[in-house]
């Protein structure tokens, strides 16, 4: 128990010190990692615990981002308004759309979410009086915490990751609670779950709404980080990237989401040093991960751990 605590403290110390020891663009990427972790968490909950493929996360990410942009730039409201408006709109939309489409199962549901994402993307482009279209909305101010302006990646990093840790705690609770148990029973055998009078629909809608909330938070954080939002950031491609995160990392584990977010953020950056071939290499890396590490990165890490840990009696792994 104590050694576990030591590991956690060590990890926290490294986490806190990191932005001060890395070059600025790496700190920048770490901020993106945090943002993608939050968005990926929602997808991971749906995928890992409900067996649902959600290809609409870019919609909620966009709603959060545009809400923050619109509230701060056009309406001159304080930043918190953007976060709240984005969250409320996203959760409401998720609830309204979720109720009918979550009745669908399997790939039908995946297609429905894809359709939702495509509709939202088309509207982001079309309603350019609201979103600025391809030109976008620029000049979004940096976040200001009681006078302390988060204008550098090394400062914003802490804010983003604290939000990320909070979301991870919420997700962890959801997963470990009775609700989580019911979700997994539903994923594995819906007839059995139904026989235990579990209200599947309500549960799935709940998780879908939580996923939308996380997506919106990530979007608002993104808006303040990039200071600029435009339609190209919220297309179906982005939803596919978000889907990759839990699948690469291992959808059922929360640290896996962080691993997946790191992969999706840092690997393209590292590969770009190799010239125009980097896009091909990224695709190959994805193939490599899925073929060689079928449980995702965390699955592989877990197996590595078990192999390296000395056999001790009385310990469960």
């Amino acid at each position: 128990m104590t050694s576990r605590l030591l590991w956690i403290v060590a990890a926290l110390v490294i986490w806190a010190a990191l932005p001060f020891f890395v070059p600025r663009n790496i700190a920048d990427l770490l901020v993106f990692t945090g943002i993608y972790t939050i968005a990926g968490l929602g997808i991971g909950l749906l995928l890992g615990h409900c067996g649902i493929v959600n290809l609409a996360q870019a919609t909620f990410y966009g709603l959060g981002a545009y809400s923050s942009a619109y509230c701060t730039v056009m309406l001159g409201l304080p930043s918190i308004a953007g976060f709240v408006v984005g969250a409320v709109i996203s959760m409401a939309l998720a609830y309204l759309i979720g109720r009918p489409i979550l009745r669908l199962t399997g790939y039908f549901l995946a297609l429905a979410t894809l359709a939702l994402g495509a509709i939202a993307s088309a509207l982001f482009f079309e309603w350019d009086w609201l979103t600025g279209g391809t030109l976008g909305i620029g000049g979004i101010p940096k976040l200001d915490l009681f006078g302390f302006v988060l204008d550098r990646p090394s400062r914003y990093y802490f804010f983003v990751w604290i939000v990320a840790f909070t979301c991870m705690a919420v997700a962890h609770n959801l997963v470990g609670s009775r609700t989580g148990l019911m979700l997994r029973s539903m994923r594995d055998s819906s007839t059995a779950a139904a026989s235990l009078s579990v209200d599947l629909q309500a549960l799935r809608t709940q998780v879908f709404v939580v996923c939308a909330l996380f997506g919106s938070l990530a979007g608002s954080l993104f808006a303040h980080h990039a200071s600029f939002v435009s339609t190209q950031s919220f297309t179906v491609d982005r939803s596919i990237s978000f889907l990759l995160i839990p699948v690469i990392g291992g959808a059922t584990s929360i640290p896996g989401i962080v691993a997946g977010a790191l992969f999706v953020t840092f690997l393209p950056e590292l590969l770009s040093k190799l010239g125009d071939i980097h896009q091909i290499l990224f695709g190959l890396a994805l193939v490599g991960v899925v073929v060689l590490l079928p449980d995702g990165l965390m699955g592989a890490y877990g197996r590595l751990q078990r192999r390296l840990a000395p056999r001790r009696s009385g310990h469960d792994h």
Binding site: P23, R24, N25, D28, L29, F32, T134, L135, G136, P153, A226, F228, S230, T231, Q232, S233, P268, E269, S272
Partner: peptide, 29 residues
């Protein structure tokens, strides 16, 4: 063709490579 990547590259060029000016990018976003 990704504005997020452009941002990272800009940070690297300005703070890492210490360029005196920046040319581009190709896309408005």
């Amino acid at each position: 063709s990704n504005p997020d990547t452009a941002l990272s590259k800009a940070n690297d060029l300005i703070f890492g490579q210490k360029v005196v000016a920046l040319l581009g990018p190709s896309l408005t976003a």
